[in-house]
Amino acid sequence: MGTSESKQSVTYEYPLTDKPWREPSNWNSQVEQALIEDIKKIKPKSLVNILLSGPVGAGKSSFISAIFTICDGEKSTRAKTGGSGSSYTVKYSGYLPENLLENFVFRDTMGIEPSDGIGFHVDDFIYLVKGHIANNYTFNPASKITTDNKSFRKEPEPMDVISCVIFVISAKDIYYGIPYDFIRKIGQLQDNLRLEDIPRTLILTQADRLCDQVRENIKNMFRSKKIEKAVRTASEIFHIDQASIHPVVNYEVDYTLTPENNIPLLLALKQSLKYANDRLKQIESAKKIR
């Protein structure tokens, strides 16, 4: 007498949506050039600071280098990067891309660690935002900057303040679960930003490490169900609208300059620049109202 084995039916869910869940649906040189032209039109009257913040190893410095790669037309490592173990950036650094951008300074900070006493000290954040901390200040994870420190500006100029903050987090970490301590620390930073009315965007880096289909073809970015879920999850956790959350692939391994590689970075860059410039205009308008 023969035996029969029970078979469990496994339902396979296709990893890509039928239609893109975000525009643009076409990724080509025309779309890339249109984004570049839009970015060129954003011309603040004075220097505008954009601050990058996020967990250690998320790719803050890599994102800055990717911007320089696009602006310079060749691979750039202007912002040095390290491994995932500890923060490579220990000083408050400023980077001024040329060619494509005008009057925008990208500010890099020490990475956020889950435990207190290591990594970026959250109490330094409000001083950074208000422009009190000078360039090249060396962060001290154990204590915040004091007002008698030589790098502390008692009366910052308008060009010293931060006009937009870009939070940088790994798409894979968001999808599979970011530790609560990171959420708590970034939540504290966002509370300060809301009080100062400073706009925020969020970059989900290393999207290719989360989704195999994106790694195979970056044009699948806005059809990937995993990436869509990561964007939705990030929005729920950090209370940032989905339209201000941008999945990207940094120029780390494959740094071939192509429209397909550039488009996600340009989308993130365009919105962050616009937010920063709008914030500057808002401050200028407020001065005229008595």
Rank of each mutant, 00 (worst) to 15 (best):
W27S: 03
P44L: 01
K45N: 14
E37H: 06
L47N: 02
Y14F: 14
V31E: 03
V31K: 02
W27T: 01
P20C: 09
S25Y: 02
Y14W: 12
K41I: 10
K43P: 09
Y14E: 13
S29L: 04
P15D: 09
I42F: 14
E13L: 14
L47F: 05
S4V: 02
A34K: 13
I42D: 10
K41N: 13
P24H: 11
P20S: 08
L16Y: 12
N28H: 11
E37F: 02
K40F: 01
P15F: 04
A34Q: 15
P20L: 08
V10S: 08
T11F: 10
Y12N: 05
S6R: 08
Y12V: 08
N28A: 10
S4Q: 00
E13Q: 14
N28P: 11
D18M: 15
T11P: 06
E5A: 07
D38C: 07
E32T: 00
Q33I: 14
E5F: 01
Y14P: 03
L16F: 14
K40E: 04
W27L: 06
D38W: 02
Y12Q: 07
S9C: 07
N28E: 12
E13V: 14
R22F: 03
S29M: 02
I39W: 01
S46Y: 11
T11V: 14
Q8L: 06
K19N: 13
E5I: 07
N26E: 13
K43L: 13
I42G: 10
L47D: 02
K19F: 15
Q8C: 05
S46E: 12
K43G: 10
K7V: 10
T17D: 10
S29E: 05
P44I: 01
I39V: 04
L47V: 06
T17Q: 11
Y14I: 08
K45S: 15
P20M: 07
T11Y: 08
P20K: 05
K43V: 15
E32Q: 04
Y12E: 07
A34G: 12
I42N: 12
L16N: 13
L47G: 02
S29V: 02
K43E: 14
I39M: 04
S25R: 01
I42S: 11
D38Q: 11
P15Q: 10
P15R: 06
K19W: 13
K41E: 13
I36D: 03
K43I: 15
P44Y: 00
Q33H: 15
A34H: 10
W21F: 12
K41A: 14
I39T: 01
K19Q: 15
S46W: 05
T17P: 04
Q8N: 05
